[in-house]
Amino acid sequence: MTKANIREQEAYSAFLEDFRPKRPTLRNIVVAFLTGGLICTAGQGVLSCILSRGMPEKQAYVLTSSIMVFAGAFLTGLGVYDKLGSFAGMGAALPITGFANSVVSPAMEYKHEGFVLGVGARMFQVAGPVIVYATLTATIVSIIKLYVF
């Protein structure tokens, strides 16, 4: 009998509480705020630059996203973005540059498994779920918006 029963598991889990180091939550939040803020400010810079060249607002937003995706992808290729991510957590992961990082990192990593089943299949390992749930939620939201309200 070495697989503990539920009561023993709960007792052990309670016992562990005293030993688990707490995550540095405050530090993490502050760093995420600053990093995420800076990335968005950079995005704003790109946006202003495009707008000042007379591009319509809607297209300018789209182009800004593309440029930020490129930046995130490039920094991942250079091996910089994973360090930023481990430093800033969601501050680096939540902006669209982090989305690009989640696409490029598995694509590079699985190159040795070939360009079809490696790069192609694994590219959306992390980003795939994001797209799936974004699409599902957006569809449901739109249907509700159109037919319920």
Partner: peptide
């Protein structure tokens, strides 16, 4: 876990 270039934070444990 994740691909090596994926940026994520490790918990202290």
């Amino acid at each position: 876990r994740y691909p090596t270039e994926f940026g994520h934070q490790r918990p202290p444990t």
